[in-house]
């Protein structure tokens, strides 16, 4: 049994602090995605509400913002912020900070679109009935519209969390030491001792990603079904 584990190269992870290091990398991944998610949820909600405004300027600017962010690969956005900001504005952002900026910008766009969609899917007579009952505009929004929209918003935004965690894996391309980068380092360091480390270590990282994202996806799916 043990020799089998060795052949797959998983044993490398149990030498020294290797597994702890990998977990440390995982923490970096989770930290970046959770901070970005928190920013996206708060600002995205505000952005979605703002887009309800009929103002032409607001509409055009938000449309361009959303379309540009959504059509560009996240890696391109990371490059623009990480390499571009240094050159254009002479500010030196760390990889982690650039990642948080990019993922927040992306999350706000996605979140704003979700919020806008679900707010406008609330039918018109809900507004009219609330008005007929004498509720003010703010009261209508807080007590009538928001609770109905949240049932749509929450499952999709939970799904956004898994997308965010998956996309965070890209930060290794701008030099942030996260889980995959740590895995790479472990494999490189043990090149001579364990030739098959690349198989075992990457397999473990693969499974770790799955174990983190899968429960969140399941939760999102369950909520979506229940609140339909």
């Amino acid at each position: 049994m043990f020799s089998y584990v060795k052949d797959l190269g998983i044993d490398v992870l149990f030498k020294g602090h290797n597994f702890l290091r990998l977990m440390g990398g995982l923490l970096v991944t989770l930290k970046i995605s959770l901070i970005s998610i928190a920013i996206s949820v708060v600002l995205g909600l505000a952005f979605g509400i703002l887009m309800q405004k009929k103002n032409i300027a607001v509409r055009v600017v938000s449309r361009i913002y959303i379309d540009f962010i959504r059509i560009m690969p996240q890696l391109v956005l990371l490059f623009i912020v990480y390499f571009g900001s240094t050159r254009a504005f002479r500010i030196n952002l760390t990889g982690e900070l650039s990642a948080i900026i990019v993922f927040s910008l992306w999350g706000i766009a996605e979140m704003g679109e979700i919020v806008r969609g679900s707010l406008s899917s609330v039918s018109n007579h809900q507004y009219e009935s609330a008005e007929a009952l004498g509720l003010s505009r703010l009261q209508t929004f807080i007590y009538v519209i928001l609770p109905q929209s949240l049932r749509r918003i929450i499952p999709i935004s939970i799904n956004l969390i898994t997308r965010m965690i998956k996309t965070t894996s890209l930060v290794l391309m701008i030099g942030v030491v996260e889980m995959i980068k740590v895995a790479q380092q472990i494999i490189e360091a043990n090149r001579m001792l364990s030739k098959n480390a690349a198989f075992g270590v990457y397999l473990v990282v693969f499974i770790l990603y799955f174990l983190i994202c899968w429960p969140i996806s399941v939760l999102s799916m369950k909520l979506e079904k229940r609140w339909k």
Partner: peptide, 23 residues
């Protein structure tokens, strides 16, 4: 479907490109 939807492409690629040659 669950496996492929819940893992990032980059680790899928790393596994195929660096991991599979080892076996």
């Amino acid at each position: 479907i669950e496996l492929s939807r819940n893992t990032p492409l980059i680790i899928q690629l790393f596994f195929i490109y660096y991991g599979l040659p080892k076996v």
